[in-house]
């Protein structure tokens, strides 16, 4: 039995790869936890779609300010040096190429870097576009944090996404419970596997053909 990374461990692994000085947007869900694993001595500035530049740690519940929330409407604090802007300016940040990185959750990613993260199908009543389409085309880099397979064991890394796309050809890297993969011209290249996992097993849980190394 292979011990995969849990959701917080995936967030921690992503945090390792974010260098000082980057300006980063974290999507709702698993990506939001990434900021908790940036060591305090490494200055990384986090953006929220609702107009925050410089998100600080979550407040104690009794210190939460209902006027100060992130894009998931969770209470936040501001770092010293933070700035607040209105929604159009906040998305000018996202769409104008000002983010070094956006970390998004996904339902599916394919070997061309296509991203599907807003609906399970066109008749799906839940349609969570939010800011994902803007962030996906606007950020300098898009990394995805996701479970390697669905709860039913279906692969999420595919030759072609079957769900409606958020954006085409934008994902550069995928962090899952099992591996770290890069999207290359030749498809998914495996950069790292969790201890005890072998390439054949990872391939068996992946819809797309994997490249070694």
């Amino acid at each position: 039995m292979i011990q995969g990374r849990d959701r917080l461990a995936i967030a921690r692994r992503i945090a390792e790869d974010i260098p000082e000085g980057w300006f980063v947007n974290l999507g709702i869900g698993m990506p939001t936890a990434v900021s908790d694993y940036i060591p305090p001595e490494r200055e990384v500035i986090f953006h929220a779609e609702n107009g925050v530049i410089g998100i600080g740690p979550a407040p104690a519940p009794e210190e939460a300010d209902p006027y100060l929330v992130n894009a998931g409407v969770q209470p936040i604090t501001l770092l010293t040096g933070a700035a607040l802007v209105h929604h159009a300016d906040s998305f000018a940040i996202a769409r104008g190429g000002h983010l070094d990185l956006c970390v998004l959750g996904a339902f599916q990613v394919d070997e061309a870097g296509d991203l599907a993260n807003w609906a399970h199908g066109l008749t799906e009543p839940t349609r969570q576009i939010g800011g994902a389409m803007d962030l996906a085309v606007g950020a300098q880099r898009v990394w995805v944090a996701m479970e390697h397979c669905t709860k039913a064991g279906e692969p999420r890394l595919l030759p072609r996404c079957t769900y409606p796309l958020t954006a085409r050809g934008v994902v550069q890297r995928v962090y899952t419970d099992l591996a770290v993969l890069e999207v290359t011209a030749a498809g998914f290249a495996v950069r790292e596997m969790v201890p005890g996992l072998d390439f054949a097993t990872l391939q068996s849980r992946t819809g797309a053909t994997l490249q070694r190394g």
Partner: peptide, 28 residues
Amino acid sequence: PQGTLAERIRAGGAGIQAFYTPTAADTV
């Protein structure tokens, strides 16, 4: 899309009739 929504509103307030954006261009 949320950024397109914000920008369409901003454009409306600014007298810009329409604009082109890559957001959602490759989607349904």
